[in-house]
Design a protein around this nucleic acid. Structure first.
Length: 106
DNA sequence: ACGGTGACACCAG
DNA sequence: TCTGGTGCCACCG
């Protein structure tokens, strides 16, 4: 069954391959709620930093890091985590999503 | 049960 | 291109 939107979201994000990214709306759609993109962000925001969920692989549909900064998860941190995996991130926190997007033919 | 919240997405000007 | 406004809906107190 569904198992809950939250669990599905975390499950899906956990399956994103290293060096790949997905958008919030993409995660929402993959979990059966195409218009619940905002909730995906809210769920990740509530997750502890040590949850093991690769939250940094989730960006917005424009390929831009859309995080609101906090001490555990900031734009700069997300940028570093992505670059460490080989994903190019510009100084404006932009990613070539057409090149790195996971689960969608390009 | 109910209303505020927001790590989005999309559209108008 | 950029800014601002609006629709969205699961989560939390």
């Amino acid at each position: 069954m569904t198992g809950g939107f939250r669990e599905q979201v975390l499950k899906f994000i956990s399956r994103i391959p290293k060096g790949r990214v997905v958008s919030y709306s993409q995660v929402a759609a993959a979990c059966g709620h195409p218009r619940a993109a905002r909730q995906v962000g809210g769920i990740l925001r509530a997750e502890p930093d040590n949850s093991g969920v690769p939250w940094w692989r989730v960006i917005n549909n424009q390929g831009i890091i859309s995080i609101k900064g906090s001490w555990t998860a900031s734009k700069e941190r997300q940028r570093e985590l992505l670059m460490k995996e080989g994903v190019e991130v510009s100084e404006n926190f932009e990613v070539d999503i057409h090149q790195y997007r996971y689960g969608q033919s390009q």
